[in-house]
């Protein structure tokens, strides 16, 4: 682990991205203290103002302060996404470790259920669930968790199976170590890095997902600020005031990109071998932005 932190600290991009995310999350949490205006207070007379000292990011079609809305919107978008990610990862880890550790019948049952869940395309499944449960932030979180957990069980199970094949776990079993000890000391400690990579890359995907659902009007309901929904409202005035899309669009873009970069950096710091050839020249900025898996070539 010591080597991990050292490599992580020496990676400028990783540190920059971590600082950026830390700042964004702090701003989101402290939004009520920092926001200069009430994010829902309307002032029709001042609508569509450009950036100025009084309104840093200008005002929207109802004269609300965009900067305050971005702060409060980040609160919803980021915190909801992180919450969704934590729930999915916990379910994925518990079931994945069970399947990978015990194998046999337990594994078969869990994996067959996962197969069923994975046979639905996840976007369609989310829309269907929101359709049944109704719109709203709780429901899209629920729908996202239901649509995604099976995939995480799969991933984490395959990570666990790799570890189960190692001789130190065989030794621990022969020595009579308890299941709890083996899971805690060998499996979780070993897999935590790879799970962290999954989690960060996934947060990016979930932010996009939740913004997209809000953009479609299925998630957060007005007048609550949320980035996807701000983008939706900006879309209505796109022809007359295209500048309205800039703030929420950039916010989503930057945070999603930052999470993807962070995921990649953690992966590189964990497995320095993957990146030997790329240290000076990042493989592809675009691949990283869109969370595409890189192909390892030596």
């Amino acid at each position: 682990m010591a080597g991990f932190w050292k490599r992580f600290r020496n990676d400028n991009l990783a540190m920059g991205v971590s600082l950026f995310l830390l700042m964004v999350i702090t701003l989101a949490i402290l939004a009520p203290l920092l926001a200069p205006y009430d994010p829902t207070a309307q002032n029709i007379i001042d609508k569509f103002q450009g950036p100025s000292l009084t309104h840093w990011f200008g005002t929207d079609q109802l004269g609300r302060d965009v900067f305050s809305r971005i702060l409060f919107g980040g609160r919803v978008t980021i915190l909801v996404s992180v919450l969704t990610m934590v729930v999915t990862i916990v379910i994925g880890t518990v079931l994945g470790v069970m399947a990978g550790y015990f194998r046999g019948t337990v594994d078969d049952v869990i994996m067959r259920i996962c197969d069923i869940m994975l046979s639905f395309p996840s976007e369609v499944l989310i829309l269907a669930i929101v359709g049944i449960l109704g719109t709203g932030i709780t429901n899209i979180v629920l729908a996202t968790v239901i649509a995604k957990w099976a995939w995480y069980v799969r991933m984490i199970r395959s990570i666990v199976i790799q570890f189960m094949d190692s001789n130190y776990i065989r030794f621990a079993k022969v020595a009579g170590c308890s299941t709890g000890h083996i899971v805690r000391k060998h499996l979780l400690v070993g897999a935590i890095g790879e799970i962290a990579v999954l989690a960060t890359l996934d947060t990016a995907a979930i932010i996009l997902n939740i913004s997209a659902l809000s953009f479609l009007g299925l998630g957060v309901q007005p007048p609550t600020a949320e980035w996807g929904m701000m983008l939706n409202e900006a879309k209505n005035v796109m022809t007359t005031n295209p500048g309205q899309m800039l703030a929420p669009g950039m916010a989503i873009f930057l945070v999603v990109a930052a999470f993807n970069f962070l995921g990649d950096s953690i992966q590189e710091a964990l497995n320095p071998k993957i990146n030997r050839g790329f240290k000076t020249k990042r493989y592809s900025l675009l691949d990283s932005l869109f969370g595409r898996k890189k192909v390892v070539t030596e």
Binding site: S166, N167, R170, V174
Partner: peptide
């Protein structure tokens, strides 16, 4: 037990 592949035998 003692294994052949000592590098993978200790966590």
């Amino acid at each position: 037990v003692v294994f052949q592949d000592y590098t993978a035998s200790v966590n």
